[in-house]
Simulated assay, not measured.
Amino acid sequence: MSRPSPSPIYTLRGAGGPLNTLHFSCQGEGTPLLFSGSGKGAIHIWNLNSRRAEKIIEAHSGNSVIWVSTLQSADALISQGRDMQVCWWDVSEGRSELVESVRTGSVGYCQCSLVEMSPANYLLAYAGEQTEEIKIIELPSKTAVCTLVPEEKLGMVMCLQLWQPDSGSGPLLLAGYENGSLLLWDVTQRSKLSQVKAHPEPVMCLTFDTTSLRGVSGSSEKTLSSWRLDGQSNLQLQDCVTLVNPGVSQLCIRMDRKLLASAGWDHRIRVFGWKKLRPLAVLQYHTDMVLSVAFSDHRDPRQRVLAAGSKDQRISLWSVYNEGTDTG
């Protein structure tokens, strides 16, 4: 049975637009930071100690920022905008300098995915100019690695997750498509390993636990679809989770793999135990669609928080299940 909804521990205001994306950087010795990207083209760097914006970068020519991430430390920032550009920023020592940019050609809302292959060497996956196309490049060299296009018509690429398996084999990529399909790609072989129809509607978001090889995806309907990878790299559908209201913008698993959070079109954040997808809490604060959710990466579990960004231009921060509570 779900607990009564708590209140946010604090909120961040002043983003000036819908909050499409959130990213924490709290592991280093420096100030814990939260990066946000808004629908008005602004990237805010929030100081979590002072609870104020430390810096605002006017990015992407005022076009909506749909994804932000950092490289190793918080000194290098990557952002993606609806201007079809991925930008690399130097934000060290108070700077906000544009270092490099890559043109994606994609007019959609599919967020990039980034994985570190070796120190100072990354792979970046993004939706390409053609409808079903996924491009993967190396950073910082911007060298093209491959282009992945399915043989059948699946519609637009909606969401991506790139990762490097512990087995030492090449990187793998999960992609959700407009027709509701999920595809698993072998990046090195440039080949499709598995495919399932996870939803009747477009796959709006997905997240994958690379340790347990389990994942979950959401769409415009009232269900979350869970699935797993078996030993032969086949995607297998598991149980569905029924939601009260339709529509999920984003999903996020906490780094200890105990909690899953969902951003709902019904203005609510839902928290589930990741092991069994048991509903634990419904967090109510926002007055419009919740567009983004992220768990902080503090090394101390007691300091970890959940952040949610909304179309109402506010970010709420929550302390949930940090004291070893049974999350199921």
Rank of each mutant, 00 (worst) to 15 (best):
V305P: 00
H199E: 07
I134G: 07
E100D: 15
I253N: 05
P18R: 12
L12D: 07
L184P: 10
H23Y: 14
Y122I: 05
H60I: 04
G247R: 08
P279K: 08
Q164K: 12
N47C: 10
M204C: 14
W274V: 04
S225K: 08
I315P: 02
V115T: 13
Q164S: 06
Y321L: 12
E151D: 15
S226H: 09
M156G: 10
G247P: 11
K153P: 04
D209M: 06
R228C: 12
S167V: 04
G81I: 02
M255Q: 14
T207C: 14
L213Y: 09
V145C: 07
F295I: 00
S50Q: 13
G105F: 04
V157R: 02
V196R: 06
G215L: 02
C112P: 07
Q232Y: 09
H267C: 11
G108W: 02
S233V: 11
P301Q: 10
R278H: 09
L280S: 06
D209H: 07
A120W: 11
K40S: 15
K275S: 14
V68D: 05
V241Q: 10
R13H: 11
L283R: 03
V293G: 00
W227I: 07
L77W: 07
R190H: 14
E29Y: 12
D230L: 09
R270G: 07
G168P: 06
Y285E: 00
S194E: 04
S92E: 14
S7F: 06
R302E: 14
D75N: 13
K55E: 12
L139Y: 04
H23C: 14
S64N: 10
G264W: 01
I78W: 00
G108C: 06
L77D: 02
S96D: 15
M289T: 15
A53H: 08
S233C: 06
W185C: 01
I315N: 04
P202Q: 02
V149K: 13
V91W: 08
T104M: 08
V145F: 09
R299F: 04
L259I: 05
V65H: 02
D83M: 06
K222S: 13
V290M: 00
S226E: 13
